[in-house]
Simulated assay, not measured.
Amino acid sequence: MGRVPICECGTVKLWHGAVQSSENSQHLSDWYSPSHFIHGLIFYALAWVAARRQPLGARLAGAVFVEALWEIAENSDAVIQRYREATIALDYYGDSVVNSVADIGFMVLGFLFASRMPIWASVAVAIFFEGLTAVLIRDNLTLNVLMLLYPLDAVRVWQSGL
């Protein structure tokens, strides 16, 4: 799909915290990693409802498959263009391969966390991550989905910090 294996800067960082940067979504983790952890929480809940009699490994494999499909879709030209049109991600040009693999890894961590913790802990972690990223970078999973599906000017203005 034309994605670079690693950041064109030539390095792989454990963490890259600058959202408005050409290196965003190019390294192992960034401010969107919590969203992928939350994907794991959500996928665990959905798999528990739909396939709770299946072994955990089979449910996890299904979640990895869905997350991998999302990574492919998210890095398609159509979705990248939608991000640029509907969100504040004007310079977004897709994830590096290493970032996509790490995103799947964060989803796996979320899935396994949810499999071992009480429901209230998963809900609390999701709310904490959503609140943290909303406050610190004015973006999160909820806002990302909202702005991709139904962009609101008021949210875009707030996200831009104006």
Score class of each variant (00 low, 15 high):
103 D>V: 06
105 G>M: 06
37 F>D: 00
91 D>C: 05
161 G>T: 03
77 D>M: 04
64 V>H: 06
124 A>V: 09
139 D>V: 04
152 L>F: 13
57 G>L: 15
101 V>H: 01
108 V>F: 02
89 A>T: 00
123 V>F: 12
151 P>A: 10
113 F>S: 11
5 P>F: 15
76 S>W: 12
108 V>W: 00
109 L>A: 14
47 A>C: 13
18 A>Q: 15
144 N>T: 14
8 E>S: 15
123 V>D: 02
58 A>G: 10
132 L>N: 00
49 V>E: 06
116 R>S: 11
18 A>E: 15
149 L>V: 13
122 S>Q: 04
116 R>A: 14
134 A>N: 13
109 L>I: 07
162 L>Y: 06
154 A>W: 04
103 D>S: 14
126 A>R: 01
12 V>I: 15
38 I>F: 02
73 A>D: 09
12 V>D: 05
69 L>F: 14
46 L>C: 11
102 A>C: 12
52 R>T: 08
65 F>V: 15
38 I>H: 00
27 H>Q: 07
126 A>P: 10
128 F>Q: 04
142 T>P: 00
32 Y>L: 07
19 V>S: 08
46 L>G: 09
42 I>W: 11
58 A>M: 11
138 R>Q: 08
152 L>V: 12
19 V>E: 09
68 A>L: 07
149 L>H: 03
26 Q>A: 13
40 G>D: 07
84 R>P: 15
21 S>N: 10
5 P>A: 10
154 A>I: 05
120 W>T: 11
95 D>Y: 09
69 L>Y: 12
30 D>R: 03
128 F>T: 10
76 S>L: 10
113 F>M: 12
142 T>D: 01
20 Q>I: 14
70 W>G: 00
127 I>C: 11
99 N>V: 05
50 A>C: 07
31 W>V: 03
136 L>T: 15
28 L>D: 09
78 A>Y: 13
113 F>D: 01
112 L>Y: 09
104 I>W: 05
90 L>F: 12
4 V>L: 14
2 G>Q: 14
141 L>H: 02
71 E>Q: 14
129 F>P: 06
122 S>N: 03
95 D>F: 05
145 V>F: 09
122 S>I: 03
24 N>S: 11
90 L>S: 13
5 P>R: 04
145 V>I: 15
145 V>R: 01
79 V>S: 01
134 A>E: 11
4 V>G: 00
117 M>N: 03
3 R>N: 14
127 I>N: 04
92 Y>F: 15
94 G>A: 10
28 L>M: 12
83 Y>R: 04
19 V>A: 12
88 I>E: 04
104 I>T: 10
46 L>T: 03
15 W>K: 08
93 Y>S: 15
149 L>D: 06
147 M>D: 07
44 Y>G: 00
40 G>S: 12
109 L>K: 01
4 V>E: 14
35 S>V: 08
94 G>D: 07
12 V>T: 08
